[in-house]
Design a protein around this nucleic acid. Sequence first.
RNA 1: GCCCCCAUCGUCCAGCGGCCUAGGACGCCUGCCUUUCACGCAGGUAACACGGGUUCGAAUCCCGUUGGGGGUGCCA
Length: 467
Amino acid sequence: MTTRVRFAPAPTGFLHVGSARSALFNWLYAESVGGEMILRIEDTDAALRKPEFIDAIVKPLETLGITWSEGPYYQSQRKQFHVDAVEKLVASGHAYFCNLTRDQADELAKEAGLPAGYHGWSRDKGIEDGPDCVVRFRTPDDGEVVFDDVIRGEVRFNCAELEDFVIRRSDGSPTFLVANAVDDADMSITHVIRGEDLLNTVPKIMLLWDALDLGEKPTYAHLPLLVNEQRKKLSKRRDDVSLMDFLSQGYLPEAMVNHLALLGWGPPDEKEIRPISEIVELFKLENVNKGSAFFDIAKLNHINGEYIRALPVEEFIEKSEPFVYGVDTEISWDKADYKPEVFEMVAADVQQRVATFAEVPHYIGWLFSDSVEYDVESKGWKKAMIKGKMIPEILDGMAEAFADVEWTAEALNAAVSEVGDRLEARSQVPARVAITGTNAGIPLWDAAATLDRDVVLRRIAAAKALL
RNA sequence: GCCCCCAUCGUCCAGCGGCCUAGGACGCCUGCCUUUCACGCAGGUAACACGGGUUCGAAUCCCGUUGGGGGUGCCA
C-alpha cells in the first residue's frame, strides 16, 4: 500500500511557521518513504471560505519547495459526502438531533451539579430535525479508545469523558470531525501527521470512523508544538509567525526549511546545516521529539547567514535586489542615487557580514547619499570619537590631506595613516565613523573612493561639528 | 475543575540500560587572525526537574511529585 499523507490546513489567513513545519514534516516523511502527499483545505466552516486565503497557503509552500501530488482538495466541495455520513449516523442510531444552545446546556449542567459542558440531554428524546437543531454523536458510555501514535506511543482516552460532540451545525454544515474522518478514508490517507493540539480529537474521529465503518484507520503522529519564549503555542495574534513575512524580510527558503526541520528533530550525525535531500534521507518520523520547541530567531539568523555566505556572489547580488531597491523594505537613499556597480563592487564584503538580506542596506547606505547620520549616543561613536585620542586633530588632518589628495583608495588610505602616524593616534576608526557614520562595516577605502571629494569633506566637517 | 501530552545546557538537537567524568549547534565569554566590523580558527560557560523503585549497572525502564503545555466551541 502506498503511503499517503496529507497537509490539511484551515484557511484562516497567512501560512504560519507552525503550519509550515507540519507541512514540512508530512513532506519529509512522504519523501523519505517514497509516498505521496496531498493538500486539502479544511474549510468546512463557511466563515473560512475566503479564496484569497488559499493563495496564502499554496504560495509559501511552493516557495519552500514543499510539493504535493494531489490537491488542493476543498472540504467545502466535498460537503455532500459529509452530509451523507451524518445522515447515515442518524439512521444507524449513532447520532441524534439536539435543539439546546450552548447556554442552555450549561444551565442544565449547573442545575444538575455537573461540570460545564454537554451531558447528552437530548439523547433518546426523539427530537425532530429543525432550524435550530444540531446533530450530536452518541459517544459510548464506557470503554476506551486506544491508539498508537508514532511519536507518542500508546495514547488512551476514556469514552465516558467524551461529550456527545456536534457533527452537524444548525445551519446544516457538517463539522471538521466528520469531514476529517470521511475525507481521510476517501483519500486513502495512511498517515496523519499534525500538531499536538489535535491529539485529543483522535478518539472522536476514531469513534466516527468505526460508526461509519470506514475501514482501516490511518496511523497517527502528533508533532510537538512550536512555542514562543513564554512557551505558549505560537499564535497569529501575538507572535510574528507569518512565513511569507520571514521570506520578505530576507530569509532564504532553504534556510527556513533547514531551521524548521531542526525543530523537533535532529540528524543522528549532528550535522545541522545540510541540503534538504540529506535531511529526507535521514528523517525518521519515530525519531521526532515529544517536547515542544521554541522557534528561535537567533538560530534562524545563524542558519540564514550560513546559507547567504554559501551563495555565489552573483546570486547574492540578485537576491539583494528587492532590498537595495526598497521593494519591501525601507532604504535610506534616493532610488535615483543608487549605483548598482558600486554595490556589485562591495557585494562580496557585504555578503559575509549579513544574516538576512534586510541587513544589506545598512552596510551600503553611506555610499548612496550625500550625508550620513551620526548617532552620538551610540557605542561606536563614543568608543571612536570620544575615547579616541586627538580626534579633532585627526579630522582636521584628514580634511586638509583630502582637499588635494589623489582620489584613489590607496592614496586616501595612505593619507589617513600618515595623519595617524604623525599624531601618534589611531586614525582609521575615526575616519570610518566620519565617512560612514558607524565604526563597523565593509572594508573602507575602495568603497569610499567612489564618493565625491566634496561629499567626504562635508562629512568630515559634520562629524567634527558634533564633537 | 476535568481530560490528554510533555520534561537533557538559556535555546534547538544527540543519547533508545554499560561507550556519559553527557556530545553537537545557536547564544554568551576569552584568545588568535584583522588598520573597523564580520568571516574563519582555538578555547571557555552551561543541563539529565525532584523523590522512590527495577537492575550488577539508569539521562535512558516503572511509579509518584513538581513544573510546563495542549484541549475542554454549532473553530479546526
